[in-house]
């Protein structure tokens, strides 16, 4: 008998929404299975005791990396380049279907 899936279809739908992805019902079912299996596998992390361990945000020990305010801008993009890869522009701006506010 198959165990209850770790990720139910409802959760997959919610995740898709949070990730701004459109999924078909078939995809929801299929992904749910595979993602659940993946989540089951990573449970092995609980074999390691980490109560007193501090999270590693990075593998480097760097700190305080900055740039100086007012430094020369060598990466400024010219107008043709800014819009070269965009589909719809108007008055030097990018166009989106109207966003409804309230």
């Amino acid at each position: 008998m198959k165990n209850k899936k770790t990720l139910a279809n409802e959760e997959i739908k919610h995740l898709a929404k949070l990730s701004a992805l459109d999924l078909t019902d078939e995809e929801i079912e299929k992904y749910g299975d595979q993602l659940s299996e993946t989540l089951d596998y990573v449970e092995n992390l609980n074999e390691l005791k980490t109560a007193t361990v501090k999270e590693a945000h990075s593998v480097t020990e760097s700190k305080d990396v900055f740039f100086e305010d007012g430094a020369e801008n060598k990466r400024s993009l010219k107008e043709e380049i800014v819009f070269r890869n965009s589909k719809k522009t108007k008055n030097s701006q990018f166009v989106v279907d109207r966003i409804l506010k309230s």
């Binding site: 992390l45 980490t50 361990v53 999270e55 590693a56 945000h57």
Partner: peptide, 11 residues
């Protein structure tokens, strides 16, 4: 968070 802690252990 748990994964980051395990990361610290592996380092």
């Amino acid at each position: 968070k748990k994964a980051q802690k395990v990361r610290a252990l592996i380092i």
